[in-house]
C-alpha cells in the first residue's frame, strides 16, 4: 500500500499540483500578499516576502516535475515546507513584534496553517491519490505483463488491410 492510503485521510495533491501551489504561493507572498494583508512597509511584510522567496527558491531546486535543478528529494522538500511554516509562525513571537498588534503575527500563523494543511493533503510519494495494492494485482493477474510488453514479434501483418482493398472496402464490406 502507498503511504497516502495509510494516512487515514485522502491525500490527493500529487507532486505537480504541489509544485504549482509552491510557485503560486511564492509569487503571491513576494508581491501582492503584504499589500492585501495591509502590512506593507512593516517588518512583518519583509519576513513574509523573504519566506516566499525562499519557498520559490528551493522549489526550483526540488526533484519534482516542476523543479528546474532536481537536487532536493521531494520528501526533503516537504520537510522544508513544514520547518519553514513553523519557523514563519514563530518569527513574530521570537522577535517580539507580536506586541505591536494582530497584523504583525496573524498573517504568519495563517500562512503556517495553510502550509500545514497543504502538506497534510500532499502525497509524500508524489503519486497523488494512487491507492492500489500492486502486489495484490500481481498475485491476481492471469497475464504476464513483461512478456506482453517486452517479447518481440508483431501482432499485426503489415499491409494486410491494404491488400484487401484498402480502407474504404475494409470499412463497409
Amino acid at each position: 500500500m502507498t503511504e497516502n492510503s495509510t494516512a487515514g485521510w485522502p491525500r490527493p495533491i500529487d507532486s505537480i499540483l504541489h509544485g504549482a501551489t509552491d510557485y503560486t504561493a511564492g509569487v503571491t507572498l513576494t508581491t501582492v500578499f503584504p499589500r492585501l494583508a495591509n502590512i506593507d512597509g512593516t517588518s512583518a511584510a519583509r519576513q513574509i516576502r523573504i519566506a516566499g522567496a525562499i519557498h520559490a527558491g528551493y522549489s526550483t531546486l526540488t526533484d519534482y516535475p516542476l523543479g528546474v535543478v532536481k537536487a532536493i528529494p521531494y520528501k526533503a522538500h516537504l520537510a522544508l515546507d513544514a520547518i519553514g511554516a513553523l519557523a514563519l509562525a514563530a518569527t513574530p513571537f521570537v522577535t517580539g513584534q507580536f506586541r505591536r498588534g494582530r497584523d504583525q503575527w496573524v498573517p504568519h500563523v495563517a500562512l503556517c496553517a495553510f502550509e500545514l494543511a497543504s502538506l497534510a493533503l500532499s502525497d509524500p510519494t508524489g503519486k497523488g491519490d494512487y491507492k492500489a495494492d500492486v502486489e495484490a494485482v500481481r498475485r491476481a493477474n492471469m497475464e504476464d505483463p513483461a512478456r506482453k510488453v517486452h517479447e518481440r514479434g508483431l501482432a499485426v501483418t503489415p499491409g494486410a488491410a491494404a491488400t484487401n482493398g484498402g480502407a474504404a472496402t475494409a470499412a463497409v464490406s
Binding site: 494485482v137 493477474n141 492471469m142 497475464e143 505483463p145 506482453k148 510488453v149 501482432a155 499485426v156 501483418t157 494486410a160 488491410a161
Partner: peptide, 11 residues
C-alpha cells in the same frame, strides 16, 4: 491479420 489480444497485460 491481427491478434488484438496483444494489448492485454492484466486479466
Amino acid at each position: 491479420h491481427i491478434d488484438p489480444s496483444f494489448v492485454v497485460t492484466h486479466r
